[in-house]
């Protein structure tokens, strides 16, 4: 079937401003949108730049806006669009465009790093594994599906707004949740002090966009709410 792609183009090294370019492509219904983009670049316009790696929603490389909504191009199928429909492809919001659909993810990883995304444990580990019950593991099992694609952070109205751009965003908070609620972690106090401010968990205004766009179906907003609850509980405990 024939599809029409309208793709955001911008090379800051030579273009004064961004523009849109359209491409027609014959595609099979089972093709991914990523397959279409690959073919456009291979067959029609080799100057088009976008990231991709695994092609099946595990590496997190090909987050972009498809008809206005953040998604992975490898998870969207041609059959879900109509013949002759114009499909609008744009880079993720929030981040600086480096070239076409490629955005600067450095700030994303900086915010990610700010939550101490690693197990904090001061007691010496046992000879074998630390024990953890199935129920304890299940508390954060959804969160470990995160592939750092940045779709949530790019879709969040709070990270998008200039006055709140220092908010660390949902992806970093999902990783914070993953460690805060891991029964093996002993860093709760320092984690809570990192998260208990307007750029941390309190930056979230429960807009649900993160949950809506997450390609791995993580209940992001609920997890952020649980962090907030945990902060309040820890304060009560101290009083």
């Amino acid at each position: 079937m024939l599809l029409k792609f309208k793709i955001f183009r911008y090379d800051p090294k030579k273009d004064e401003k961004p523009y849109y370019q359209t491409y027609d492509i014959q595609a099979n219904p089972v093709d991914r949108i990523l397959d279409c983009l690959n073919r456009i670049r291979w067959e029609q316009d080799t100057t088009l730049s976008f990231r991709r790696s695994c092609g099946h929603g595990v590496c997190g490389s090909d987050g972009m806006r498809i008809n206005g909504t953040s998604a992975l191009a490898c998870q969207k199928l041609v059959k879900d669009f109509k013949e002759n429909e114009e499909i609008l492809i744009e880079p993720l919001q929030v981040f600086r465009v480096v070239k076409d659909l490629v955005v600067d993810q450095e700030p994303f990883f900086e915010k990610y790093n700010s939550v101490k995304p690693y197990l904090i444990s001061n007691s010496p580990p046992p000879d074998k594994e630390r024990l953890q019950s199935i129920e304890e593991h299940q508390i954060f099992d959804d969160a470990i599906r995160c592939i750092l694609c940045a779709c949530c952070t790019a879709s969040c109205p709070i990270t998008q707004a200039e006055e709140t751009e220092t908010y660390i965003g949902p992806a970093a908070l999902v990783r914070a949740f993953r460690y805060l609620f891991d029964s093996r972690d002993e860093g709760a106090e320092e984690r809570i002090s990192l998260l208990d401010n307007k750029d941390g968990a309190w930056g979230c205004q429960t807009k649900w966009w993160c949950t809506k766009v997450c390609p791995k179906e993580i209940p992001v907003t609920r997890q952020i709410a649980r962090i907030k609850k945990r902060i309040i509980e820890s304060k009560k405990g101290k009083q």
């Binding site: 197990l119 594994e129 630390r130 199935i134 304890e136 593991h137 099992d141 993953r178 891991d182």
Partner: peptide, 13 residues
């Protein structure tokens, strides 16, 4: 020990 979230069995191992 590094923190890999392995699946667990009924004994917590």
């Amino acid at each position: 020990h590094m923190g890999v979230p392995f699946s667990r069995n009924g004994a917590g191992k």
